[in-house]
Amino acid sequence: MDTYFSLLGLPANFALDLTQLEQAWRQASARVHPDRFATASAAEKRVAMQWASRINQAYDTLKNPVKRAAYLCELADYTVDAENNTRMDSAFLIKQMQWREQLDEVRGKPEQMLVLLNAIEQEAQTLEGCLTELLDHKKDFALAAEKVRQLMFVAKIQNEIKSLLA
């Protein structure tokens, strides 16, 4: 089975060099670029477009830490299932509630919102480090799926704060 990693010629790891990812995407995209198929048959053009779409989908998934971690879990037959499985450890739930309360308190105060955003970004980095250990070294996909759900929440509140600051 071709994975997004093999499609781009990359190791199937959570820890990815994003520069290497972009280079691999550019090379793969160049191989199926429509200009290369200008004189090809309609069927060949259609196949090239399908490959281009798959390459772009691979790049979109692998460049995003949440999507990349969830994809690695899925490859190992562990679904993150964030819509139905909202179980998280109590310490993280408390942290979520605290962030939400803090956001309510600092809404409209850009300097304080940036402080909160920085704290949440540190949590994201911690979770990404944890996911590197769980996915790339320990191969503990069950615990990684839980950490992915946590990272999804962190990304959501980060995006919310960034949109309020924009």
Rank of each mutant, 00 (worst) to 15 (best):
T86H: 14
A12P: 08
A76N: 13
L135Q: 04
M113G: 02
N159T: 12
K156N: 12
K138I: 04
T39F: 11
T19M: 07
Q57V: 09
R107P: 00
M49D: 09
E105W: 03
G9C: 09
K63I: 08
C73W: 05
R107M: 10
L131G: 04
H33F: 14
D60Y: 15
A58L: 07
E101C: 03
E44F: 05
E128N: 08
S163M: 13
A15H: 09
W51E: 07
T86K: 15
V47P: 00
D136A: 07
C73P: 03
L151T: 00
R100T: 15
M88N: 03
L131Q: 05
G108M: 10
A43C: 02
S29R: 15
M49Q: 12
P110I: 04
F141S: 01
A166R: 10
T39S: 09
V32D: 06
A166P: 00
Y78A: 00
S53K: 11
Q112P: 01
A91N: 10
Q96Y: 03
V148L: 06
V148F: 02
Q27D: 10
L103R: 14
L62N: 06
R36E: 12
M97H: 13
D136Y: 06
F153T: 04
K147D: 03
A42N: 08
K162C: 04
M113T: 02
A142F: 11
A155K: 13
Y59F: 15
D60H: 15
N64R: 13
G129P: 04
L116T: 02
A42S: 11
A12T: 07
D2G: 01
W99A: 13
K147H: 11
L114N: 13
Q122E: 15
K63E: 12
K147W: 05
A91K: 12
D81L: 02
L75P: 03
R100C: 05
Q122Y: 10
A40M: 06
A145I: 09
A155Y: 11
V47Y: 12
A69C: 04
L103F: 14
Q112K: 12
F37P: 03
P34E: 14
R46K: 14
